Simulated scan of single mutants.
Amino acid sequence: MSERSHGRARIVFLVKVPVERRDDFLAAYEQIRFLVAEGVPGHLVDQVCRSATDPEQWLITSEWSDLESFLAWEATSEHRDLVKPLRDCITEARSLRFLIEAETAGRVPA
C-alpha cells in the first residue's frame, strides 16, 4: 500500500527536551496548538505527553483527516516558522507517520 491514503493519519514525534528547557518547550507548544487546531486544513487533534519515567522524553501526536493534509502543511514555510521555537528546545527527534486502520472507543461515562 502506498504511503498516500485517503484515510485518517496519526503523526508521532518522539523528542528529547532537556529539563531546563521544559517550560520553554511547553510555552512554545501552547503558542502554536490553537493556531494549528483552528487554521490548518485536515488537522483533527493533537496531544503533548511527558514520559512517566524519563523527564526529558516527550511525545507529540497529531491526528489528520488524511496524510496528504499533513504532508502539505509540513512542506510550507508557515509550518517551519511556526514550529521553530518548539524545535529550538529539542535535542533529539524522531518522526513517524501512521495510517489509521482501526479504532476502538470506550463508552462515555453517564
Results as ranks from 00 to 15, higher is better:
residue 12 V to C: 14
residue 14 L to D: 15
residue 109 P to W: 06
residue 74 E to S: 12
residue 71 L to S: 04
residue 40 V to H: 06
residue 79 H to R: 13
residue 26 L to W: 12
residue 2 S to M: 02
residue 90 I to N: 13
residue 92 E to H: 14
residue 107 R to A: 13
residue 45 V to E: 15
residue 3 E to D: 09
residue 38 E to M: 11
residue 24 D to Y: 06
residue 27 A to S: 15
residue 61 T to W: 08
residue 99 L to T: 08
residue 53 T to H: 13
residue 71 L to E: 14
residue 4 R to L: 15
residue 35 L to C: 00
residue 99 L to D: 05
residue 14 L to E: 14
residue 72 A to F: 07
residue 37 A to K: 09
residue 85 P to L: 10
residue 34 F to R: 13
residue 19 V to I: 12
residue 23 D to A: 15
residue 100 I to L: 10
residue 31 Q to T: 10
residue 86 L to V: 04
residue 21 R to V: 06
residue 27 A to P: 01
residue 105 A to Q: 11
residue 93 A to N: 02
residue 61 T to S: 07
residue 85 P to Q: 04
residue 27 A to F: 01
residue 37 A to G: 09
residue 103 E to H: 06
residue 26 L to C: 00
residue 42 G to N: 11
residue 57 Q to Y: 05
residue 48 V to N: 09
residue 44 L to P: 02
residue 9 A to M: 09
residue 102 A to I: 03
residue 50 R to F: 00
residue 59 L to V: 15
residue 14 L to Y: 01
residue 91 T to G: 07
residue 74 E to M: 04
residue 75 A to V: 03
residue 100 I to S: 04
residue 104 T to K: 07
residue 6 H to L: 14
residue 47 Q to E: 06
residue 39 G to T: 08
residue 37 A to R: 11
residue 36 V to F: 09
residue 71 L to P: 00
residue 5 S to A: 06
residue 35 L to E: 13
residue 99 L to P: 01
residue 46 D to K: 01
residue 72 A to W: 02
residue 109 P to Y: 10
residue 40 V to S: 07
residue 7 G to V: 09
residue 36 V to E: 05
residue 101 E to G: 03
residue 51 S to L: 01
residue 93 A to H: 03
residue 85 P to D: 03
residue 104 T to Y: 08
residue 106 G to T: 13
residue 26 L to R: 02
residue 69 S to M: 04
residue 65 S to L: 11
residue 74 E to C: 06
residue 13 F to P: 08
residue 11 I to L: 15
residue 105 A to K: 15
residue 60 I to K: 06
residue 98 F to S: 05
residue 32 I to Y: 13
residue 96 L to C: 10
residue 20 E to S: 03
residue 104 T to M: 15
residue 84 K to S: 09
residue 90 I to D: 11
residue 44 L to A: 00
residue 71 L to H: 08
residue 33 R to F: 02
residue 62 S to N: 05
residue 19 V to C: 03
residue 78 E to Y: 08
residue 93 A to G: 12
residue 51 S to D: 12
residue 43 H to Y: 14
residue 47 Q to D: 05
residue 81 D to I: 02
residue 37 A to E: 10
residue 107 R to V: 11
residue 60 I to A: 15
residue 40 V to F: 03
residue 1 M to N: 01
residue 61 T to H: 03
residue 106 G to A: 14
residue 41 P to M: 02
residue 11 I to Q: 07
residue 64 W to C: 03
residue 85 P to N: 08
residue 28 A to E: 02
residue 66 D to M: 04
residue 59 L to D: 01
residue 71 L to R: 10
residue 42 G to K: 07
residue 87 R to E: 11
residue 106 G to F: 08
residue 3 E to Y: 05
residue 64 W to F: 07
